[in-house]
Each structure stands twice: as C-alpha cells, then as structure tokens.
Amino acid sequence: MHPIVTLVAQRVALGVLLLFAASILIFVGTSILPGDVAQSILGQSATPEALANLRAELGMDQPPLTRYFTWLGGVLQGDLGTALTNGRDIAESLGSRLGNTLFLAFWAAVVAVPLAIFLGLLAVRYKDRWPDRLISAVTLTTISIPEFMIGYVLIYWVSIQMGWFSSVAIINDSMSLGQKLNAIAIPVMVLTLVVLAHMMRMTRAAILNVMQSAYIETAELKGLGMLRIIRKHAFPNAIAPIVNVVMLNLAYLVVGVVVVEVVFAYPGMGQYLVDHVSKRDVPVVQACGLIFAAVYIGLNLVADLVSILTNPRLRHPK
C-alpha cells in the first residue's frame, strides 16, 4: 500500500481518539464544577424532596460513568440532549447558531487568509524595506488592540460617521445573502484585523526560512525575478507551516469570537454558550464544548494532512 494512505489513516484515527479524550475531559470538567443545576432552577427556597425529584428527572442521581455513556451514546446519534433551563432540544437550537458562527467565520477567512498570505509574500519581497515595516507595524498594532475596542472604533467611524454598514449584526433566515453580508461586514473587518498579524508573520517567517536554502540561490542564478522565485520555489516548500497557522486561526474564528458576537449582538454560538454558562445549563455547555473541540481537532487534522500531502518525499517515495 502507498505509505501515504497508512499515514493519513493514522492521523485520522488519532483525530478520532483525541475527540474521545476531549469528550471525557469536557464531561469530567463540567461534572466537578461546584453548584447544582436543580438548585439553580428551583431557587434557594426549594424543599429537599423537590430537589431530589428534579435530580432524578434529570438523571443526575446516576453514577458518573453511566451518565457519561448515556450522554456519549446520545451524541453519537446526533442527540445532544435537552437544555435544562428551557427544555428545548439542544441540537435544534444549536444548529442555527452554529450555522451563523460558521457563516461569519467563513467570510472572515475568505478575506483574512488570502490577504495575510499576500501581505506575507509582499513583506518577503520587500524585506527590511518600508513595505515590510509598514505591514509589520500595522498588523502588530491591530493584534495588540483588544477586539471590542476595534469593534467600537469601527462602528463609530465606518457605520456611524460614514454610514456604510450596519452597526448591529443581527441576521435571520429571511434576509438575502447581500443583506446578511452587509450586516456582518464590520464584524468580518474586526476578525480580519485580529487574525491577520499572526498568519502574515508566520507566512513571512516560513518563506524567509525557505529563502535561505541553496535551491533559492540556484533560482537566483537562473536569472529569475524575485516574485517568481518566491511563488515557484519558496512558497511550495513553505505550505506546511503556513497551513498550520491558517488552521489555528480558522479555529479561533469559530471558537474565539465570543467577544465580537457580544459587541455586535450577533446570534452565534459564542453568545449562546455564554448565556448558558451563566445559567449553569451543563448539557448545553457540554455540547458547545464538544463542537468547539471537534472544530479544533478537525482543522488541525486538515493541517496535518496538508503537510503530509505536500511533502514530495511522502507523495513520491523512492
């Protein structure tokens, strides 16, 4: 069998294993949290009988191991349980929220990833000259400012002063794509500014690292132009580290956008999670945790696979 098939199968198996480990951590983590859902639902004045009844109803009197497997069995069948606080099916309410989060993350990625790589290439081309310094300075500045700050600044200037886009990013299913994009334009800008620096700097570093290689000198001595050298000889050998950092940032776009969602009142997963954490709604927290873990593991798996598939030694064995 082609060695690459084995390698890929190994990585995928490892990813699945990691996901199970993450599910255990999430379950144990939420189980040892202080506080009691029954108490928080019924309030301080609840009678002991009422509390015991509610616990039994919620399945909280079972041993932890049984509870874990019941939960896991449900998750594997697509049943994330019901929210304790409002009794709704979690999978259902999470579905549209997840869709919204992915929608925002997708458009932020569409803008940020090509821009970051392009700026990284540009910084290499003009290394240590003013374009490189300007790119570095600007991206470092935007990553250093807290994102809510950037959010409010952009709302003030872009939305209120110039009146270009909506300052509130509430979207719903009845809106057209154009309306939706208009609504999320400013959050996309904020997210882009936040993730740009990391990706751009890694691209720059990865390509500069490759530019030290002897085969770059060979290319220079062929009389090739700098941009062609970067594009044809340096970039293909720098893909693996670049994809790695891109995936980390994509994961951040899905998982780490809580603040931005709150600032723009965007109906995504982050807000949903924060709401339910404050209400001690454990099943919702678990479900969100598991989805975040799956996103992280999945995207990093993709990064691993890309670095395997772009390695010529693995792709074309002797």
């Binding site: 085969y215 001595l221 009389g223 000889h233 293909p236 050998n237 772009t310």
Partner: peptide, 22 residues
C-alpha cells in the same frame, strides 16, 4: 538577470541542496 542562467550558469557543490525538493 539575462546573463545569469543564460550566458553564464552555475553548478554547485551540493546538488542535493541546490535542487528544489518540491
């Protein structure tokens, strides 16, 4: 640039390092 790789070319000590692995 027209001279390099056209009129004058170069063979290095380590071909292994001087060929692009990709």
């Amino acid at each position: 640039r027209r001279l390099r790789g056209g009129e004058v070319t170069y063979v290095s000590q380590s071909a292994a390092a001087s060929f692009n692995p990709a």
